[in-house]
Nucleic acid binder design. Structure first.
Lengths: 354, 354
DNA sequence: CTGAAAGCGCTTACAG
DNA sequence: CTGAAAGCGCTTACAG
């Protein structure tokens, strides 16, 4: 709230430097009366110098308001302290929570995130990765459209971690789907459902398959009838369009591949005059932002998306030798979040609610 | 889908280079039989050389699978082809749409986005900006907590654009609030409301003030009673907590500072047994992801968040002399999106719906 | 513990 | 149009 014409407050501390030029280690060296290489040592590896010299240099650096030039540092070291996050479709809400976790984990170790979108094309994604790779220390693939082989090829060239997909010989971070699915099926069985559908994601999606495999196995354990229903796309519209097939299947409960599809199905069901959960129970997957905005709010199997991003960064940093390997025992478990969209089917003997 | 042990497919094209080392312009120079400086010219400013030489060099570069080293290029030029996006709170859903627009606009000009969060603290934000600035060509402040003076000081040091806030002498990108507000008030007046509240955002928020000023002026034009109601925070909870104050005001319609607050208010209203829009019409602001997930879906005044991000990047690029100044006539108009949460008040003579 | 020198991979005046 | 040289701001063996 001071006067807005405070131009005379500009940092003229250095004195010797031409206006506008940022101070370098040479300026510090001159001011501190040491060799530039000594300045470099003091600043880049503290504790290796005579404490007095180091102190002197720190003070000179502070007086000049010095900041290291990251590009200049990167050139001889090859390290940019930057991580590339590559996402197929920046529109995917799942991606937002991953970014949050990743950004914070990166910042915690002095790293910064570079964001790139590949616009849903595998070819473009490879190109994007090639473009970004030279300026970052490592890559994280969030919702990749690449084939396993392409991913492996990329991983041979650069430090890399994949999120939400398992690829042989490539470090990856995936959630444990079992706990959340277990709890969700327990809940559905407990309130009286006997016949459940899985509304699948894209045919070639690794994660959709992983979820289906687990759901099928666990449903069988509980003597629930289970059926997989194909969808047109893993979006709101995909959920809406699947409504007829879901009805035709005659199930009383659906687990959707993701929340967006769950919400679409919820909307279509209500539009058709069905009561949710009375006529149809709906459970989503992931617990994305907004999944509890619906009425009734969407029950969902939460994926620890933040943690996924966080862990991916930590694994990458460990690969780079920058940080210790993270220790993540059981930290990636999914969790069932019961909300209003799932409950007892109409006319079930047991009207209990989880 | 080939054999996963395809190790002999590794790019051994160069031949002379040590394994793992990336080719440089010196390798190209040698292969093409020219001086490295000529290679540099051919690659960095096409069209300035003898077409034959240039062609020769391009082929050599391609044969070696050469990619320029961005850090090495940045050192002499001072240009990183990178833009820093600084956001106070990465959790703010408004930010996501802005990022989308920004990322695409940046990519269109060969720029890449660096993401940094300042964790909602003004002090940390200044520090974050200082940390990021040296490695980017310019800065975009998305949801800044800095004071006008701090922003001006930053803008003197670095190319910078602020989004959603007007600061003297600093380039900024803000939406036109009038069109959307006009249409929303037209709608409310048309269906029979006579008394409306604005549920305000943070006291010191520039944008909340801008919206309120406009709403007040336009309400008066229409002889609508208008009142501003303070809130605790611009979030879902802030909307929920404001419910009692809204009821006490005796209004039949509310325009919320943002969608999150609108959704919170909607939830609290329904919880209290009110019918929306019968007992209370609610209009949000921004049209964030998920604002149409509610039942009824939230009417809202859409802010062109994508365009905001896109334009901010274009303005910044223009400032850097990289791109022509964008031409954005009327492109940032807000727009009223009527959905289910607003309509005729119970017992109003006119039950029309916009 | 610290200095002097070479080098990271580019770009860009300066000559010719 | 192209070569030869210097320089961008650091880091890091190599000596001492």
């Amino acid at each position: 709230m001071t006067d807005s014409t405070g131009d005379d407050e500009s940092p003229a501390v250095g004195g010797t430097r031409p206006r506008g030029a940022r101070p370098t280690i040479y300026d510090i060296a001159q001011l501190a009366g040491v060799n530039p290489s000594t300045v470099s040592r003091a600043l880049s590896k503290p504790g290796r110098l005579n404490p007095k010299t180091e102190q002197l240099i720190r003070e000179a650096a502070k007086a000049l308001n010095y900041r290291v030039n990251p590009m200049a540092r990167a050139l001889p070291t090859g390290r940019t302290h930057t991580l590339g996050l590559i996402v197929a479709d920046i529109t995917n809400p799942m991606f937002f929570d991953v970014v949050r976790g990743a950004e914070r984990a990166a910042a915690a170790d002095g790293y910064t995130l570079v964001l790139a979108e590949s616009q849903e094309s595998g070819a473009l994604e490879a190109e994007t990765a090639d473009r970004v790779a030279p300026s970052v220390d490592g890559l994280i693939l969030v919702t990749t459209r690449l084939t396993d082989d392409e991913i492996r090829a990329l991983a041979e060239q650069h430090p890399l971690v994949v999120i939400n997909r398992l690829v042989d010989d490539v470090p990856s971070v995936i959630p444990e789907v079992a706990p959340g699915i277990d709890a969700a099926l327990d809940h559905l069985a407990a309130v009286g459902h006997t016949s459940v559908a899985f509304l699948a994601g894209p045919e070639r999606s690794w994660m959709s398959r992983a979820r289906w495999d687990e759901i099928m196995a666990r449903a069988v354990d509980r003597s629930l009838n289970i059926v997989e229903i194909a969808s047109s796309s893993p979006t709101l519209d995909g959920g809406i369009e699947a409504f007829n097939r879901v009805r035709a299947a005659g199930v009383t409960a659906v687990v959707a591949y993701n929340d967006l599809m769950g919400i679409g199905l919820l909307r279509a069901s209500q539009q058709a005059g069905l009561s949710v959960p009375g006529d149809l129970s709906i459970v989503g997957f992931d617990d994305i932002f907004g999944s509890d905005f619906t009425s009734p709010p969407l029950s969902t199997i939460r994926t620890p998306l933040n943690r996924l991003g966080e862990l991916a960064v930590q694994r990458l940093l460990a690969q780079l030798g920058t940080a210790a390997a993270p220790d993540d025992v059981g930290a990636l478990a999914t969790e069932f979040i019961p909300r209003g969209s799932s409950g007892a089917p109409r006319g079930a003997g047991n009207a209990a609610r989880a």
